[in-house]
Structure formats: structure tokens, C-alpha cells
Design a binder for these strands. Structure first.
Lengths: 245, 245
DNA sequence: CCGGGCGTTTGATCCTGCTCAAAGCGCGCC
DNA sequence: GGCGCGCTTTGAGCAGGATCAAACGCCCGG
């Protein structure tokens, strides 16, 4: 069951999520950091839990933005495409991550699962009412949005100014940092996305992604464990190659 | 007085700012859209007004994030750089725009004026208290942050997947849309940024920026008015060349 | 009115990463 | 356990944009 394996891999929690992985229950939303138990229950009462398959779409650009979501299990890609099909992946979301907030009436990007996934879905209107009644959640969400903006800035720097090797090195380090520290050295780092998705995240082609990974492998910086896992052998070298901002 | 001229050019208001330009007074902050007159006065009482010169730095990456700002006059660039000096400009800010919000304790990017500028500065702690007491402002700010994220997404698509011509065409159209509609056809569009800054925004080099602008000019799509203004002659063609998302 | 400096334009050449092509291989299905 | 499809790797050649270099021109100060 490879999909389950990588799904578990991705239950590894982000740094700012306090509680350990209990199969990524809803109380571990990033937005719940600001809430006491009673408020958490109130919020959870508003949620619809959804189980999604692999490569299932949550929403597409242009869809009316009726819901917001919180990922609790699995991994999701968020992307935006040109009319001719060229695609830019904006980010990969992991459990705890929040998505779907829009300034206007419709979604401005696509969201699709990479693995099987579970999300909690909220009616946008209901959620906004909850925010009005719970300002500390609104502030927490503001902090999350600021954090997303800072990540977007790093990604813009990667896309606009980094070389292919720097992009891949940065991508691997990001993924490593966001996955649980318990996996390092022991387990290899899971790559639930295809080469095509790595390419669309880094602004490269699949061939270049493959070649760069190959070069890192022959340079003993990483070890490829099948096509969808990597073990980092030389952290310092990878850091150096990433062109640390 | 070229700097004053382009400063006025840039007082042209954004679409979502209701009131017309009265030399960009503080009541026209984007965040003020959510406030009644009494709340506006309360907010303004917390502000320090600053007058800034050309190419003056508001803050740099790594600086402790002690303040947030609202631009009221002039133009500002927000950027992020690598250790070796490669720079990516994340965006150009116009009057009404808000900046400086951070998820952590320090700024993650640089902000610098392009022209002479005026800003209202708030102590971060004071401002956060105000947000707690005025949830509708927090929600307004959340909407602004979402809008910034959507803009960042468009920029990532530009940097990762668009050709040189598409990047420049998109840049010109963005700038046109954000400047006041009253300038179109009549006045040319002011470019308060240098070629180097356009290059750092579009992820190109100054030579490529210059060449692409030259090609657009010989194709009668635009007309260059000196080096720091452009008149759009053929909107439809420019739109087509931008690879509309 | 002239001279200097910086930002911009233009030209020639180079190189990184893309395109096109084909072989390899791992996974899932039967 | 074997087969076939789709993802990945590898190779050869190409091109878009970068780099290096030099001329232009605008703005400002003297």
C-alpha cells in the first residue's frame, strides 16, 4: 500500500503545530492554535469532513468560492495555469494547512490532492461569521496568511532568480523542513508528487528535474530511493547548493 | 521637477479605493474601507506620518518588525535578495497599499521607495491591539492579505512559466490597471522604476527588458515617451501578448 | 552652452535549460 | 508471476535569454 505509506509520511507535523500526530485529527488545525477547547468544539460543529481520493480536485480557478478548507491528512497541490496548459504549482500543502480563502467571489487557483486525503470543509459565510465572533481566530488566520505571503516571496525568488540546481536543492530542503524531523536519516523523505509536479513547482521541465536529481545523486549529496523518495546524505552541501537567501 | 510629476502620476487610485485623490490623505487607506469616521480618527491617532526621499529604505530583511506601514503618496518596491546580490522584486506598491505585516519577529523582505513618498507608520503592538478591538479591521486586513496572495500567485505564474514578451506585457497591463483610468490615452503611463527594477520584477535582465520594449515599440503596440513613460497604443495586442492566464 | 555621468539601447556571442526522441523500469493489474 | 502502461531517465541538438561589450542620449551641473 504505497499510497497509505506516503500518506503516513505526510502526517508528519509542521513546526508550528504543537500536538503530535494522532492521525491528524481536526483539533490539530493550524487555526486551532488560538482556540480553547470550547471554541474548538464550536468550530468543529461547523465542519463537514470529506475523504478524498488521489488526484481529486477540491476546486478550480474561477469556481465560486463557497467553502474554505483545512487539510487534515494527505497532501494537496495548489496551482495556476495559462490558457495553453502551462502550469505553475504555487505550493504543496500538508496536514494542518488551511486553503481556499479568497478576496473575491471566486477561486483564483486550482487545488488538487496528490495522495488520498481528508479535509474539513466550512461554508465560507458560516466561517466568516465565526471569525467575526472570534477575533483571535481572525488574527491567527492573518498570521497564517502572512506566513503564506512570506513563503510566496521565497518562491518568487526561487522562480525569478535561482538556477536549476538551486531550485531543486531549495525544494528538497523546504520539503525536509516541513516534514517531521523524526524521519530524517532514519526514513528517507517521501516525494508524493511526480517529476511533472516538481517541474511545475520549480518552473523547470521534467527532464531538467530528473537530470539535476541525477547529478545530485552522482555527487553523493542525495540518494534516490525508488522514484518517490530521497535520502539527504550531505545536508551542508545541499544547503550550499540552495543558494541560501 | 520630474520626481513630483511621477509622484502625482502615482496618486492615481486603485480600483478598490472609493474616494478620489485628495493628495492621498490617510483616510484613503485600503484598511479604512471597513471603518466609520470615529474609528478612522482612532486609527489615525495611532499613526506617525513620515516623509521619505527617493530610494530611501523603509526596512530590510532581517530587521525586527516593529512597525507596519500604509503608503499614502509615492511608490515603493518590495524585494528579496540572495547573498550574492541577485534580487527579486516582489511587487510595486502604490498609494493606499499596506505593508510590513509579518508572521514572525522580523521582516522577510526589503522595502524601498522608488519616488519621494509619504507613509503612515504604526507601532506593531499598538496596531495589533487596535485589530483585537476592531475585528472588522482585522477581517479587512485578511481580505487585503488574500488579495496580496492572489497577486503573488499571478506573479509566480509569470516568473515560472511566461516568456520574456509575456512578462513585459503582463507587467505593463498590471501597472496600467492599477494606475488611474483617467491617465489612459491622454497621459502616458509613468514608469517610476528603472529598467533594472523592471528586470528584477520580471526575472529578466535589463538588456532583455530593453529589447522587448524596443520590439513592442517597433510593432506599434506601445510608444516610449522618454525612458520612464509608456503609451499603450494597442490594448488588444498587448493583452494577447500577455498570455492572459 | 558645453561636458560628464549614469541609465538605456544595441550588437555579438555564449550557455543554461528546453525540445524532441528513445530507452529503461517500476508499479499495478490481471 | 508476467505483462503493459505510464513515469522516469538519458541523450542529442536547439534556442531563448544571459553575458560581455560598446555606443547612445538624456539630464544635470558647471
Amino acid at each position: 500500500m504505497t499510497s497509505t505509506a506516503s500518506l503516513h509520511e505526510f502526517c508528519a507535523r509542521r513546526g508550528d503545530v504543537a500536538t503530535p500526530c494522532r492521525h491528524c485529527g481536526a483539533r490539530e488545525f493550524n487555526i486551532c492554535q488560538a482556540l480553547d477547547a470550547a471554541q474548538q468544539d464550536k468550530l468543529l460543529a461547523l465542519a463537514t469532513r470529506l475523504q478524498l481520493g488521489k488526484r481529486e480536485r477540491l476546486f478550480a480557478a474561477g469556481d465560486p468560492a463557497r467553502h474554505v478548507y483545512n487539510l487534515t491528512e494527505g497532501a494537496v497541490s495548489v496551482s495556476r495555469s495559462l490558457a495553453d496548459g502551462r502550469r505553475q504549482i504555487l505550493g504543496f500543502l500538508l496536514p494542518g494547512d488551511f486553503l481556499g480563502l479568497e478576496p473575491g467571489e471566486s477561486h483564483h487557483c486550482d487545488a488538487e490532492t496528490l495522495t488520498e486525503a481528508k479535509v474539513c470543509r466550512f461554508e465560507r459565510t458560516t466561517f466568516e461569521t465565526f471569525l467575526q465572533d472570534n477575533p483571535e481566530v481572525a488574527l491567527r488566520l492573518l498570521r497564517i496568511a502572512s506566513s503564506d505571503l512570506a513563503q510566496a516571496a521565497r518562491h518568487e525568488l526561487l522562480l525569478g532568480r535561482k538556477t536549476a540546481v538551486e531550485r531543486i536543492a531549495t525544494f528538497l530542503l523546504d520539503l525536509r523542513d516541513r516534514s517531521g524531523a523524526r524521519h530524517l536519516r532514519t526514513h528517507p523523505l517521501a516525494l508524493p508528487m511526480t517529476r511533472s509536479e516538481i517541474a511545475d513547482y520549480t518552473g523547470l521541465t521534467i527532464e531538467t528535474v530528473s537530470r539535476v536529481l541525477g547529478r545530485l545523486r552522482s555527487g553523493k549529496v542525495i540518494e534516490l530511493v525508488g522514484a518517490s523518495a530521497v535520502r539527504v546524505l550531505d545536508d551542508e552541501e545541499l544547503e550550499r547548493l540552495s543558494g541560501a537567501s
